[in-house]
Design a protein around this nucleic acid. Structure first.
Lengths: 210, 210
DNA sequence: TTTTCTATGTTTACAATAGCAACACGCTGA
DNA sequence: TCAGCGTGTTGCTATTGTAAACATAGAAAA
């Protein structure tokens, strides 16, 4: 690791602050995410962050945007290695989404918390998420045309799947599943079961008269 | 309304504080939920709440518990008016759950936020939610025995349904659906579609050789 | 080279908050 | 009557967000 310049001017404070913010979210949680704590970890004065972020919300928003970028990259990478048919691509997306959310709970929480930030107002994020949904919808439509997914409004199907996946990872990340099931369980088995039920719900029912 | 006694001793400060807390959550949001603001609304000094709640977390926890109670009451009432077969009971529960979450977003958010409170540590709530899941599981098992729901581990099915419903109402309450769909939409139509897909995913597939 | 400008940190200051401690009030029971 | 205890108040400290004034380093211009 290159020695960090111990100078009056930090060099790349913005990045350092984002890293520190994510570290705080991971280690302590959202209630520990204060401007001053982040500044402390970056080794600067408590007012330095204001040169890069107008206020606390803007700092959080930057973390959220970074999270969406990383998530998108992960999903694209997974899709790239999957077979090129719509069903495989769709499955790869879904698995990658869940994997990212479970591997980076701090990112996912801040991205979707709704308490930490009223991100709904941010136009960039609105655009990003709408684009992601659109991709999902056309993917479903392709699967329908191949006869691999039952008929129906693909937007509704996408929203339902999104609900299921988002609900699942939220429950897991907020630790709401651990004490629901008393007997020991494997997270992967629940995950696979949830994904399987999604696909069963999507699958074309067999022709009764076949 | 009876005139509130303007006395040194409030009379029922604890309830008043819970009401004020919910009002703040509704009007301002979680970031406005401070001990002092709640005290101000209840017309008492800033330290008075500490006679009833050890700290801010305990106040929030009390709101959460109240929320679970009201939700349970609502669901019980809905089930009482529904037909007495397992399928109707189950459907009534699901609809009541969604209805409560959408009609009382402030309650639902604080109940499931995971940021506002690490409620997972509270034993009462653990018991309550485990009991609710257990009821759901046995309800599904009944439906299975009647041949109305496809075979499979009812715990997994319950968790999947819970994920879907929780994800749906979370997305709606956090306003993540409004700007996902650009064309005008009816929330009810999405809700019904989501519930319909849950039931389709649960329904016994028709016998191929029938 | 020297001067000046600008981006980026620092220091200082203020208002709001959580939470603690000491005090005050008033009901209740001996 | 009055002692005790539950409940509310006042006042204090530490922490936070955020603004304003100041400082510095590196770039741009002279």
């Amino acid at each position: 690791m290159a020695a960090v310049k111990e100078k009056y001017h930090h060099g790349d404070l913005r990045s350092a602050l984002l890293d520190a913010a994510l570290a705080v979210l991971t280690e302590i949680g959202p209630q520990g995410l204060t401007i001053r704590e982040v500044a402390r970890r970056a080794g600067v004065s408590h007012a330095a962050p204001y040169r890069h972020f107008a206020d606390r919300d803007e700092l959080i928003l930057a973390v959220v945007e970074q999270g969406f970028e990383k998530m998108q990259q992960t999903m694209q990478a997974e899709k790239a290695t999957a077979p090129d048919d719509p069903v495989s691509q769709f499955a790869a997306s879904g698995l990658a989404y869940v994997a990212f959310a479970l591997q980076h709970p701090a990112y996912y929480r801040v991205m979707f918390s709704g308490d930490l930030l009223s991100t709904t107002g941010d136009l960039t994020l609105q655009h990003t998420s709408r684009q992601a949904l659109q991709e999902m919808v056309s993917n479903i439509a392709e699967c329908q045309q191949l006869g691999m997914v039952r008929k129906g409004d693909p937007v509704m199907q996408a929203l339902t799947i999104l609900s299921t996946i988002h609900g699942f990872v939220s429950l897991v990340n907020d630790n709401r599943i651990g004490h629901l099931v008393n007997k020991p369980f494997s997270l992967e088995s629940i995950r696979d079961e949830v994904l399987r039920m999604i696909f069963e719900g999507l699958a074309v029912p067999p022709h009764p008269g076949h």
